[in-house]
Amino acid sequence: MEDKSKIGAIIVDDEERHHETLGKMLDNFCPSIEILGDAYNVDEAVGLIHEKNPQIIFLDIEMPGGNGFTLFDHFEEPPFEVIFTTAHDLYAINAIKYAALDYLMKPVNIKELQDAVARATKVIGKKENTTSTEKINVLKSNLRLEDQRFTKIALPSSDGIDFIEAEAIIRAEAERSYSNFYLQNGKKILVSKPLKEYEALLEQCNFFRVHKSHMINLTHLEKYVKGKGGYVIMNDGSHVDVSVRKKDDLLNRLM
């Protein structure tokens, strides 16, 4: 019998051993989760979701006969939180990160599993237990890009999530465990994640880390001013210091 005090979940993965491993980890380390069933492909998952109404889906990306992303073709507004699981698909992981969705690398780490479950539980507790349709649209859009150059990034803030074209970001500044993103339109977005969480993503969009606390969009760079480290002037008029150890790398990038 389903325990109403717990959060219902299903595991979608084509390999039995992954079902067993993840199921045991959830039983032992995430007592708030109740596994309602297992599916081994997307078609089975769709039927199980309609039957059991789970609040969380642990969704494998790589499955025969179509990857896990095709699950969202069956739900206009997904009525569940999703936590992706994957072994190695870097392209898919980047697409997931850009859309601010959650994922776990196989073999799954216990602490990362607990953190992912805690984040999903927090959303469910706010009665917002649906995966954002806009997040999924960003994910689908990114996955369609043949050159793997993603154009839109999700920035979670205190009042929601902003979906911003990367080229519209002039610079990003670290502020302890938060980040400030400065946009072309003059808007500043305070993001509830450290800058290091975005470094690899932004580097793919022509950003460069000029200082431990700053990344700039080279597309918006107006001028480099010489000095010990020097500084750059962006096209919004802002000045950003360049660290001594980053100076040569920056100049080589600009030449």
Rank of each mutant, 00 (worst) to 15 (best):
H211D: 02
K6H: 02
A87T: 09
I136Q: 07
S238R: 11
L250M: 00
V12N: 04
K247W: 02
D89N: 09
V46G: 07
I93A: 08
P31Q: 08
N185K: 06
Y178V: 02
I33D: 07
F207A: 00
A172I: 03
K126N: 12
Y178Q: 09
E197M: 10
G160D: 07
H74E: 12
G186N: 01
K135S: 12
G37E: 06
H50S: 15
R119M: 06
D249H: 09
K152R: 13
K212S: 14
F208T: 00
S5M: 08
T70W: 06
G229K: 00
I233K: 06
A174S: 12
E199I: 03
A39S: 03
L190R: 11
E146A: 15
K247G: 02
A99H: 07
K111P: 07
F163Q: 10
G229S: 02
E81R: 09
K52C: 10
M215E: 03
R245P: 06
H18I: 09
M105E: 08
L101A: 04
E76V: 10
I35C: 05
D27V: 12
V232L: 01
D3R: 07
T85H: 02
G68S: 05
L221C: 01
P64N: 09
A99Y: 05
E203G: 05
A45P: 05
A100G: 14
V82Q: 02
I124L: 11
K140H: 01
Y103C: 04
V244N: 12
A45E: 01
M234K: 00
T85G: 09
R149E: 11
G23Q: 11
T21F: 05
K126Y: 08
K140G: 05
F181Q: 01
S32G: 14
E175Q: 14
A116G: 00
N53Y: 06
K152H: 10
L254Y: 02
I153C: 02
L221M: 01
K127A: 04
K111C: 14
P107L: 04
S243K: 07
A45V: 02
Q55H: 13
Y182A: 04
I169G: 03
L201M: 13
K247F: 08
I10M: 07
I35L: 10
V117P: 00
H50Q: 15
K106V: 00
K228D: 13
I124D: 01
E15F: 13
H74L: 12
T121G: 08
Y40V: 10
Q148P: 08
V138S: 08
C205A: 15
Y98N: 03
F163N: 07
I56Y: 06
R119W: 03
I216Q: 00
H211T: 10
A39L: 00
